[in-house]
């Protein structure tokens, strides 16, 4: 008996992904870093390391600490800034055989708008992810994502600058994530992605000092998956645009949980560090599961 190859393509606004698996911002560099280990053409897309208007050194070391089934990071958005990105990284992106989504972060709503405008007419950039949820910077970042009005303001200002699909990356460090998601949609978001990392901390009991130089950092990895899943479920009920689920996804089974609660796509972050082939294996795992259950469309998973 011939098995029909299931169609696992999904739409994020007007952006069509060949499959629902993306690699997360900050966890996959600019794609080239993993090109020798991962067949990038197998992925639905990659989301670039966050870009700010000006170059950022990032935070002092130590920046990462391993915790129970997870890790804390406080990189602090180290990046070369918009103009060097356009000069040094953008030309390389046309070689990446999948959708490239740029992640943008600003200290003010105007900075987001400036970056969005600059990136919106570039062939190799398929969509923008607006990062209003970085927990490791002192200005902007998560502050915008913790306030409905500021979320609306940032998204709305960016919306006026670009016709690219807009994904808004939400912070879990809020009381009611659904209301922030609604504000993002009202501002003009085509999709939301969640969750960014959970603000956390670890102490060294020998030195009696924090284990991160920045004291606090963002928790990621399998430890946060139940929290992420709950929030994705809440947001999926609250809005009518695609939701990209992320937070601790390590396997295709984890991905299915997110798709089951209503996510349109999933994003793979920390798992890349543990197993660079995780994203490819997840694509294959979802396909195999669908074949086994004779599903021809992704939405059949939820039935």
């Amino acid at each position: 008996m011939q098995t029909i190859e299931p169609d696992i393509s999904v739409n994020i606004g007007k952006l069509k992904l060949k499959n629902p698996v993306l690699c997360a911002s900050g966890c996959f560099g600019y794609g080239q870093e993993y090109a020798e280990l991962v067949d990038l053409s197998m992925l639905g897309g990659i989301i670039l390391k966050g870009i700010t208007l000006k170059e950022r050194h990032g935070n002092p070391m130590p920046r990462i600490v391993e915790t129970s089934a997870g890790m804390l990071n406080s990189v602090g958005l180290q990046n070369m800034g918009l103009s060097r990105f356009l000069r040094e990284k953008l030309p390389l992106l046309s070689n990446i055989p999948t959708n490239v989504i740029a992640n943008i972060c600003g200290e003010t709503p105007e900075e987001y708008a400036t970056i969005a405008k600059e990136l919106s007419n570039k062939d190799s950039i398929a969509a923008l992810e607006i990062n209003i949820s970085c927990p490791n910077v002192s200005h902007g970042g998560m502050l915008f994502g913790q306030d409905m009005m500021l979320t609306f303001e940032v998204v709305n200002l960016v919306r006026k600058q670009t016709s690219l699909p807009l994904i808004v990356k939400l912070s879990p460090n809020v009381t009611d994530i659904a209301s922030i998601a609604r504000a993002a949609v009202d501002g003009g978001a085509d999709a939301v992605s969640l969750i960014n990392t959970l603000l956390g901390m670890a102490m060294n009991i020998k030195t009696k000092k924090p284990r991160l130089a920045n004291i606090t950092g963002g928790l990621s990895g399998p430890a946060i998956k139940p929290v992420a899943l709950r929030m994705v479920w809440e947001v999926c009920k609250a809005i009518n645009v695609p939701v990209i689920g992320q937070g601790g996804i390590m396997t295709w089974e984890d991905s299915l949980e997110f798709l089951l609660v209503g996510a349109t796509a999933v994003c793979i972050g920390t798992a890349n560090f543990v197993n660079p082939k995780a994203s490819m294996e997840i694509v294959q795992g979802i396909k195999d599961y669908m074949k086994q259950h004779k599903m021809i469309e992704l939405k059949a998973i939820r039935m």
Binding site: G26, C27, F28, G29, E33, Y34, L37, K49, G58, P60, M61, P62, R63, I64, V65, E66, M71, N73, V75, Q78, T270, N272, F273, P276
Partner: peptide, 15 residues
């Protein structure tokens, strides 16, 4: 201490 080991995460830096 490293996470990715391939230059993607910026977790292990030197000044």
């Amino acid at each position: 201490n490293m996470a990715c080991g391939v230059g993607a995460c910026l977790g292990c830096v030197a000044k």
